[in-house]
């Protein structure tokens, strides 16, 4: 019983960490595109936001 409870808790923790890793990669990629990518179109579109949130802009 205890082993079973531990396994369930372990599976839940594992699933949380996997989801967290995926969320972190997704968030990091979006942050890079919105705040740091230097494609001219992205830079121009996000220009004011980059200045107003303290990113190194140009």
């Amino acid at each position: 019983m205890t082993t079973q409870t531990k396994t369930i808790a372990g599976t839940k923790a594992q699933s949380l960490i996997l989801s967290a890793l995926f969320a972190a990669v997704l968030g990091g990629t979006m942050l890079f595109l919105a705040g740091h990518a230097q494609s001219a179109t992205l830079h121009d579109a996000a220009h004011d936001v980059r200045h107003a949130t303290g990113f190194p802009c140009h």
Partner: peptide, 18 residues
Amino acid sequence: LYVSYGFLLVAGFGIAEA
């Protein structure tokens, strides 16, 4: 931008809860 910060934040929540 804030959705991307949101993802990073909840990633932290997930690890804390684990």
